[in-house]
Amino acid sequence: MPVLRLVHPEPAVGPTEARRRKIGLEKVAVDFATRGKTVRAVDGVTLEVPEKQFLALVGPSGCGKSTILNMVAGLLAPTEGTIEYDGAPVLAANTRVGYMTQKDTLLPWRTVADNIGIAFELRCRKASAGERRERVAEMIDLVGLGGFERHYPAELSGGMRKRAALARMLIYEPETLLLDEPFGALDAQLRLLLQQELLHLVERRQMTVILVTHDLEEAVLMADRVVVFTSRPGRIRATRDIPFERPRNAMELRFRPEFSAIHEELWNELKDEFAASIGGERGAK
């Protein structure tokens, strides 16, 4: 299974090293109009993601995390402020990023294998049938979907569909990954395994990542930096660098005292927001 478990080719880069800005959000705000009311979903978010950084976004449900990923992907324009990628404003679908959305977008009439290989059928990433088959087999192995190659998405569980979507994105190794709750529907064991596999891949390929998660532990284990959002409208409440070395061993990391300390520190920021978010929802009724 650990196909991609290779030795790190370059010296590991620390999270604090100064690097080129890959993604930049400048005073970004987003309003949604629903039933005559405008709701501010995101407010005054300024955020920079240096090249090759692994950034995690955490925050209560409905605080605008998916909205931010949509903007970086160029699927949504901000109401105020600007989004930049590689120094240029994002104005259309950003084909430099791979985006794994919260709701999977597998093609229902294609089998798992044909879904995963679809990127290589496109003119811009054309690969021979043989190469495609080989890469698809590798990815299926990586996400543990062996035996389900010929199944249709409707025949898979929620977690299996997520894994297929992950494989479909990872197969063409985009330079930047936008991951919205990629491991949400998985059991603890599989989650650990896939977190570790993703870490290997990202470290080996030096990818830039924005990971959205509800799971603070996951954020601390995987990211170089964690950003905590307030409840709606989403603002940045806290930012924390995570000083652990790369490559990382997520399994081993979670038993270190520093890990617990950072986790607790961030949890203290987050828990007020969860409370505020639930209080807000109740108050609205």
């Binding site: 992907a73 084909t95 990023v97 791979g98 985006y99 709701k103 977008t105 679809i118 496109l122 003119r123």
Partner: peptide
Amino acid sequence: DIIQSMRLMGAR
């Protein structure tokens, strides 16, 4: 959503 995801993948 499927169309958008294909577009991000680089589909014409």
